[in-house]
Design a binder for these strands. Structure first.
Length: 426
RNA sequence: GGGGGAAUACCAAAGCGGCCAACUGGGAAGGACUGUAAAUCCUUUGACUUAUGUCUUCGUAGGUUCGAAUCCUGCUUCCCCCA
């Protein structure tokens, strides 16, 4: 029961907590929650970091509640944002909220005494009218108190709307609501949520004279301090339709040595000894990527399942291994297709392919601008030696050498060292 | 309400009548080296064009000029000072 804090501590997931938190957790099964606003149709790995706190909470024997922010998402959290955000329209928001609720369910255990729950704050806010809100919530916190928050202070210069200013009250009320209805006394989140969480604690204290607690984790950043969770393609999503399991696996595998130890602590469920072991092995033979492989395996399996993981590994071996193009050619087509499931696929009409004269045209327009966004881009890439087709380097951007189609149907296009595309002739 | 300043490519920031598709830095992308790492070095970073040419860009709409990112006017947005 009491192990949560220690667990978070050694994993480097403890940034701040209120003084009595440990005592609360030691006092038997506690209940804690984290909120996720539906700003997109999927959670991304940044959300996964905070979600892991909830997972750790449950592993320590407490009850986790994941909150989908159907209401708060309508308002916009000013934390960590340098400017006012645009509203998402309601239809999108509802869709996102449903997708996210589903994803949240995947990571928690819904059985047993400390069964998880997923709730949506839209349920208690949709019929909460403005005047009632002002009387029941707004009255309890002063402007002075609200103004002091970093999330607000950072926006004083650039401007903050009344709407976003009010965000902390909404989140504060969530906490209060969960306290009242589910005796939830702990809220967790990224360190940028500290201000919002303490608003909730304050609200509970003033309305109920009760004590509630907070734990925040450091925001995961890259070694250079920049924002974590973006790959070349953009955000790394948990939804396999948005980031394929192959790309997801690759993201972890490509983790830098200096970041891997931090990442494996936060994102994997591997134990302290196992990790120490891996680090030792890794240090002895860094080129074998022990740490990265273990990290990628643990996370990919948990997010996408064992078989998707295995396919991703297989695809990686084929694409990055020494296997010659002939080997790819010899794979049964069904295997080949499943292996390449994760790499972007581009369908091109057979006739168009056969009459193709120009490499730059092929890499841009013919392949629907999915490989290169313009012909000049394609030309520059080729001039820099960055393009391979069927593993063969392209040197002339004006000509179109004839390539043997793999399996009489596919072309493997490589942009740079790690970006593959499968062109399918139809 | 009065006065002043600013809007430049992904970001930051030069340019202040022709030499500007626009200095420089960051970021990003590609290459070499490696371990699908780091560091380092090189290249690229508006589009089209099998080159040094054309077209579209410097908040927005007009104007002055042979010629404007650079000057003028209206509009929009933002910042600062006074009330």
């Amino acid at each position: 029961m009491s192990q949560l804090m220690n667990e978070l501590r050694w994993r480097g997931m403890l940034h701040n907590s209120t003084p009595e938190t440990e005592k609360y957790l030691n006092g038997g099964m506690g209940t804690g929650y984290i909120g996720f606003d539906p700003t997109a149709a999927s959670l991304h790995i940044g959300n996964l970091a905070t979600l892991m706190m909830l997972v750790q909470l449950q592993r320590a024997g407490h009850k986790p509640i994941a909150l989908a922010g159907g209401a708060t998402g309508m308002v916009g959290d000013p934390s960590g944002k340098s400017e006012e955000r645009k509203f998402l329209d309601e239809e999108v928001l509802r869709y996102n909220q449903d997708c996210i609720s589903e994803q949240l369910k995947q990571f928690l255990d819904f059985s047993g005494a400390n069964a998880a729950e997923v709730v949506n704050n839209y349920d208690w806010f949709k019929n909460f009218n403005f005047l009632d809100f002002l009387r029941q919530v707004g009255k309890h916190l002063t402007i002075n108190y609200m103004m002091a928050k970093d999330s607000v202070q950072n926006r004083i210069e650039t401007g903050i709307s009344y709407t976003e200013f009010t965000y902390q009250l909404l989140q504060g009320y969530d906490f209060y609501h969960l306290y009242k209805t589910k005796n939830c006394r702990l809220q967790m989140g990224g360190s940028d949520q500290w201000g919002n969480i303490t608003s909730g604690i304050e609200l509970i204290r003033r309305k109920e004279s009760a004590e509630a607690h907070a734990i925040t984790c450091p925001l995961v950043t890259k070694a250079d301090g920049s924002k974590f969770g973006k790959s070349e393609q953009g955000n790394v999503w948990l939804d396999p339709k948005m980031t394929s399991p192959y790309q997801f696996y690759q993201f972890w595998l490509k983790a830098k040595d200096e970041e891997a130890p931090k990442l494996i602590r936060v994102f994997s469920l591997l134990g302290q000894e196992k990790i120490a072991d891996l680090e030792k092995t890794h240090a002895e033979a860094p080129h074998l990527l022990h740490l990265q492989r273990a990290l990628a395996e643990d996370v990919t399996v948990r997010v996408h399942g064992r078989s998707a993981y295995e396919t991703a590994v297989k695809a990686s071996e084929i694409l990055f291994g020494k296997s010659a193009i002939e080997e790819i050619n010899q794979l049964p087509e069904s295997v080949l297709l499943s292996v390449f499931e994760g790499v972007p696929q581009i369908k091109v009409a057979r006739e168009e392919l056969s009459k193709q004269q120009d490499m730059q045209e092929f890499l841009s327009n013919t392949t629907q601008l999915k490989i290169c966004p313009s012909k000049s881009e394609a030309r520059k890439l080729i001039q820099n030696g960055g393009v391979r087709i069927n593993k063969e380097k392209i040197t002339d951007f004006a000509a179109m050498p004839t390539f043997e189609l793999l399996q009489n149907k596919y072309l493997l296009v490589q942009k740079g060292k790690t970006n593959y595309f499968l062109v399918i002739a139809e």
